[in-house]
């Protein structure tokens, strides 16, 4: 599954319009706790989170996340979006709740990527 499919499945809005959505997604990781992202996420994953500050973007970049999906219709400030752009990290906002977003994507990602 590629990022473009994920954008459609969560009815998302791409906050970084110029970015490539042809990247293959290897897994989904859902958490508001960046400590857990740093400890447990697999590379090539999409991060689902309700945390919209710059720490979400930096943590994602450092752990080789391929895109962030912000749940509950949340959108980060422009400067956070700009920082993600510099890191070439696509940002998506979905109106779905964390549970709904996980449900929408869960059937396609039943196992953790190795």
């Amino acid at each position: 599954m590629i990022l473009r499919d994920i954008l459609a499945l969560v009815n998302g809005e791409l906050l970084t319009p110029e970015m490539d959505l042809g990247i293959e997604c290897l897994g989904i990781f859902a958490s508001d706790l960046m400590s857990d992202v740093l400890a447990f996420i697999s590379p090539g994953s999409v991060l689902l989170t309700g945390l919209v500050n710059s720490h979400a973007v930096r943590t994602a970049s450092l752990t080789d996340v391929i895109a962030i999906v912000f749940v509950q219709g949340k959108k980060p400030d422009m400067e956070v979006i700009d920082e993600a752009r510099e890191m070439n990290l696509p940002l998506i906002s979905t109106p779905l709740s964390m549970f709904e977003a996980c449900s929408a994507l869960g059937q396609f990602f039943s196992e953790r990527p190795k």
């Binding site: 508001d32 706790l33 960046m34 400590s35 857990d36 992202v37 740093l38 400890a39 945390l51 500050n53 720490h55 979400a56 943590t59």
Partner: peptide, 15 residues
């Protein structure tokens, strides 16, 4: 609130 302080830092450094 910033998403940190879950008590995973030092064990994760070791890992």
């Amino acid at each position: 609130e910033l998403g940190f302080g879950a008590g995973m830092g030092l064990p994760n450094i070791k890992k």
